[in-house]
Simulated scan of single mutants.
Amino acid sequence: MPDDEVDLRALFLCLPEVAVLAGLSAARRFGFGVLREDAVHIQLPPDVSRPRLPGLIVHHGVLPLPEPVMVRGIPCVPPARCAVDLARTVRRLDALPVLDAALRSDLVTPDGLHAEVDRHRGLRGVRQARELVPLADGRAECRQESQLRLVLIDARLPAPEPQVWVCDDWGNRRYRIDLGYEERRVGVEYDGMSHLDRDRLRYDRERSNWFDARGWTMRYFTDRDLYRRPDYIVALVRAALAASR
């Protein structure tokens, strides 16, 4: 079922009045839907029967539901509840991107996430959410950047800082790095499809030479590295940090 405005409104006309948009569907509506799924997720109280409609996934919430948040006419679980629900239930590598994006949306605060985790005490997956909430950082700008950061943290390397600006010799901001260890002059970046363009390639070469000339060690990784050989990422970054000493 597509998450189309007209279809969504039509769907809610067929649902119990207490139904609220939840999970990945609510996250997408709030603007932190970094994970995609075609199905529509809703939440109902435990004592309300489960409607059977194609493309609909129903969650019976254990916790009392706070007052729904209306987003363009559709009732949704509150943003912090949505973010923590997902942080509990999706795989760890996807959970931190959700939390980062929730903070970036400005609809959720770190204190709000901590308070929400406390409300989920004893529920499945809350340990994962409790570990990841302190690591969440709204400066992260894409899912893969958040995942790359988590790979390094889980390997017990120092946590890199997202979106580090590097200045030129006159103190002007020149380039921004996905993840950086500023004191060590080590940068870590994710190269996506946008880096295959010829003009972008020229820009990247100029940028790389600029960093080299100023003593920065840059390490670049792709989706193959991130999803198939994370140990390779860890080994290269660990070596760069060791050499920087």
Rank of each mutant, 00 (worst) to 15 (best):
E5Y: 08
R9H: 15
L11E: 10
L15Y: 10
L15G: 04
A19D: 07
A19N: 08
L21T: 06
S25M: 10
A26W: 05
R28Y: 05
V34T: 04
E37R: 14
D38F: 00
P45S: 08
P46I: 02
V48K: 13
P51N: 04
P51R: 13
L56W: 06
I57T: 12
I57W: 15
H59R: 10
H59P: 02
P66T: 10
P68N: 12
R72C: 06
R72A: 11
P75R: 10
A80W: 00
R81N: 04
R81V: 00
R81A: 05
L86H: 01
V90I: 04
A95C: 01
A95R: 05
P97F: 06
P97C: 00
D100Y: 04
S105C: 03
T109V: 01
P110L: 00
P110I: 02
L113D: 07
A115L: 06
V117P: 00
D118F: 08
L123S: 00
Q128C: 02
A129T: 01
R139G: 03
S146K: 11
S146G: 06
L148W: 12
R149N: 06
I153K: 12
A159K: 14
A159P: 06
P160Q: 14
V166T: 12
D169L: 08
W170C: 02
R173A: 11
D178N: 13
L179T: 08
Y181E: 13
R184M: 08
G187P: 02
V188E: 12
E189K: 13
E189Q: 15
D191M: 11
L196V: 07
L201K: 15
R202S: 14
R205D: 05
G215R: 15
M218R: 15
M218Q: 14
R229P: 02
R229D: 09
P230L: 09
Y232K: 07
Y232S: 05
V237T: 11
L241F: 08
L241A: 09
A242H: 13
A243F: 09
S244K: 11
R245A: 07
R245K: 11
